[in-house]
């Protein structure tokens, strides 16, 4: 499509959006928030199951979940099924990459220069510790399994560049295992409590490190899975890349 047509189309869309936003008809609109809606208010006040609290304090017990990071609570507890789907999206993408790019010629990996290869293990160790912290504290501080796992994968990419480490089938196994454990946790909830992905481990003290075991377990699984997935998937890009350099 040529540029004039594209600009014309964008102009039409922009005008439509402008007209919708400047419409003066009565009714609710985005960006003009009425009083906070029921759903997110219940998430914040932890009153989804109908129990009312006048206030919530650190160290309180018996709440419906004890995560102080509400986004984490939404991602893993209230809407955990979405997250299972999200994990599956990554899984499908990596499988697709494996199907398209995998199984080609033998690979030769060239080692990197001395600076990278001497620094790589230390940086990788640092990244590993940071990312473990990130996904263990997902329910207390921002972060969680996805960024944590992605950080491990980044560390791993560094290792690939620094050493002659070859990404192996171990990652596929780990990924498979982590995905199965996610489903298994969901099924245990189904068997014990009657609903798929229901929290069956109980809730502990709000604000403590192992207070919300369910979320910690799920985030650890996600962290491992994302790390394994990204390492194996991106490995298949990198491997070929290095090989071509060698030729």
């Amino acid at each position: 499509m040529n540029k004039i047509a594209a600009i014309l189309m964008i102009g039409i869309i922009s005008y439509g959006v402008y007209a919708a936003f400047s419409s003066t008809q009565p009714g609710s609109k985005p960006f003009k928030r009425k009083a906070q809606n029921d759903v997110s208010r219940a998430y914040l006040a932890k009153t989804v199951n109908g129990k009312k609290h006048s206030s919530i304090m650190r160290g309180m017990k018996g709440l419906e979940n004890s995560s102080s990071n509400i986004v984490t609570a939404v991602v893993l507890d209230y809407r955990g099924f979405d997250t299972l789907g999200e994990v599956t999206v990554l899984f499908a993408a990596i499988a697709g990459i494996g199907l398209l790019l995998g199984g080609q010629k033998k690979r030769v990996i060239t080692p990197a220069g001395p600076i990278i290869s001497s620094l790589a293990p230390w940086i990788a160790l640092f990244i590993l510790i940071t990312s473990a912290y990130v996904f263990l504290h997902g329910h207390l501080t921002p972060g969680g399994g996805f960024p944590g796992g992605a950080m491990i994968a980044a560390g791993f990419l560094l290792m690939v560049l620094g050493f002659r480490t070859k990404p192996s089938g171990v990652f596929r196994m780990l990924e498979s295992f982590a995905g199965l454990s996610f489903v298994l946790v969901g099924l245990l909830g189904f068997l014990k409590k009657g609903s798929f992905l229901q929290n069956f481990m109980g809730t502990g003290e709000m604000g403590s490190l192992f207070g919300s075991l369910f979320i910690t377990v799920l985030y650890a699984i996600i962290g491992i899975k994302v790390a394994a997935e990204l390492s194996s998937g991106f490995g298949s890009f990198v491997k070929e890349d290095l090989e071509e350099e060698h030729e």
């Binding site: 914040l44 206030s55 919530i56 304090m57 650190r58 990071n69 501080t141």
Partner: peptide
């Protein structure tokens, strides 16, 4: 949306 020490409804 990260609750502090005390969160009031």
């Amino acid at each position: 949306p990260i609750l502090g020490k005390i969160f009031n409804v």
